[in-house]
């Protein structure tokens, strides 16, 4: 019956190849168009001054320096909080937790937390950090909010990185009389570190563009100076972009697109770093 097919295997192979290829092209077309439009309209705004000076004329001129610094300080602060907690949780779940109902519930909760809309995290941060803990609208409050949002992702990628360390390494270490914790510290973690770090960079890239979680917790409409402490409000790129695109009349188009371009480049370059790091570590690793 195999030679009575409607299409010969060769032809059907070619057709499915063509369909898969078209689907791939369709997937990248919108992204390419967006990037193209942003570059076309925004490239003229990008100057050294634009990147390093304060806004002027009610944000219709000058630069976006405080927004860049604001975003960087929030996301870096956030990852410093999330990474250690997330890695510890991942170690617990992967290396210590017994496979019982509680563990399964926790794992399920973590997976589902990753799907909570970011505005919900924003409101949560407003309620807990800004109001209840009285941190005010500040870098810390925004960073804490983002770190809670990043946590499930960091835990999940860290668990992936821990699981990918071959079981044979753990057994080799344990069988030398090395304790469980020392095995984790000296064998599992070093070998999982590249994966954990690339996951962290990707997560920074992802939250750099988030507006909702920082809108109520960290970002200010206009702060014409750099933050002096972690308890200051800051401007942030995504929020700034939202403001200048919707709230300010007669905003020069190239500044709007220029700001979008800076945000895009920031996110893309971080993803690129993560991808390059991943390729580099994968090449070095031989198991």
């Amino acid at each position: 019956m195999f030679n009575k097919r409607f299409l010969s295997p060769k032809v059907s192979q070619k057709i499915s190849y063509a369909i898969l290829f078209c689907a791939t092209i369709l997937a990248i077309i919108p992204v390419s168009i967006i990037v193209f439009i942003i570059i076309k309209n925004g490239a003229s705004a990008i100057t050294w001054e634009f990147l390093t000076s304060m806004p002027k004329d009610g944000m219709r001129g000058g630069g976006i320096f405080p927004a860049i610094i604001g975003t960087l300080s929030i996301v870096l602060c956030a990852i410093t909080i999330t990474l250690p907690i997330g890695v510890c949780a991942a170690i617990y779940l992967n290396e210590y937790a017994k496979d019982n109902l509680l563990t399964r519930v926790i794992k399920l909760a973590i997976v589902n937390l990753a799907g909570v809309p970011s505005v919900v995290y924003g409101l949560f941060g407003l309620g807990i950090f800004v109001m209840f803990l009285q941190l005010g609208v500040s870098i810390v409050a925004g960073a804490l909010t983002l770190s809670i949002m990043e946590l499930p992702v960091i835990i999940t990628t860290a668990r992936g990185a821990l699981s990918s360390v071959p079981h044979s390494f753990r057994e080799a270490s344990l069988s030398l009389g090395v304790s469980r914790w020392q095995t984790i510290r000296h064998v599992v973690l070093p070998n999982a570190l590249p994966g954990i770090l690339t996951g962290a960079i990707l997560s920074i890239a992802r939250v750099s563009g988030e507006t909702a979680p920082i809108m109520f917790t960290a970002a200010a409409f206009y702060v014409p100076h750099l933050p002096k402490s972690a308890f200051d409000q800051v401007m942030a790129l995504p929020y700034h972009l939202y403001i200048i695109s919707t709230q300010i009349p007669n905003m020069p188009r190239n500044i709007i697109f220029g700001t979008a371009l800076v945000l895009l480049m920031m996110v893309l370059s971080m993803s690129l770093i993560a991808i390059i790091a991943r390729i580099y570590f994968r090449k070095r690793r031989k198991w």
């Binding site: 390494f169 057994e171 030398l176 090395v178 020392q182 000296h186």
Partner: peptide, 25 residues
């Protein structure tokens, strides 16, 4: 001590492999 079916040295130097148990323990 135990030796496994597939050789399973750690992906570190030869020296560090042998010294591993001594140092960590």
């Amino acid at each position: 001590g135990m030796v496994f079916q597939r050789p399973n040295p750690f992906p570190i130097s030869i020296y560090e492999n042998v010294a591993f148990g001594l140092k960590v323990n």
